[in-house]
């Protein structure tokens, strides 16, 4: 299962990075979400043990590792906040430079 999870993580990364590398800023934002999904997936899979039942104290069988779950929960919400900020930057760029092509965004240097 690790192999398949790793493959999925790699594909998400590749798809995200490809979109960030292209000149379309909207796709770059999409790529960012794909990458954060990949990271969350990885963190989530890094639990010490896999369980049969959800992590509740009433569970009778082996529960899944609650620690990475709690951490990923936090990560999801925070990456959502960051993503919204990126979108507002995108809007500012589209009004300031009249473009959503990253190569046309000038004035970063000097």
């Amino acid at each position: 299962m690790n192999l398949l999870t790793s493959l999925a993580i790699g594909i998400l990364f590749a798809a995200g990075i490809y979109q960030i590398l292209r000149r379309n800023l909207i796709r770059a934002a999409i790529g960012l979400v794909l990458i954060s999904n990949a990271v969350n997936l990885f963190l989530f899979s890094a639990g010490a043990y896999t369980g049969i039942e959800a992590a509740y104290s009433t569970a009778t069988r082996q529960v899944s590792d609650p620690l990475p779950q709690a951490l990923v929960l936090t990560a999801i919400v925070i990456s959502m906040g960051g993503f919204a900020f990126v979108l507002s930057l995108l809007y500012v760029i589209s009004t300031r430079y009249k473009t959503s092509d990253s190569d046309e965004v000038k004035g970063l240097k000097n």
């Binding site: 690790n2 192999l3 999870t5 790793s6 493959l7 993580i9 790699g10 594909i11 998400l12 990364f13 590749a14 798809a15 990075i17 990949a38 990885f42 899979s45 890094a46």
Partner: peptide
Amino acid sequence: GAAGLVMAGLAFIAL
């Protein structure tokens, strides 16, 4: 693709 491969490899080793 290369970056994705590296990440997949790292994830695989780590997991």
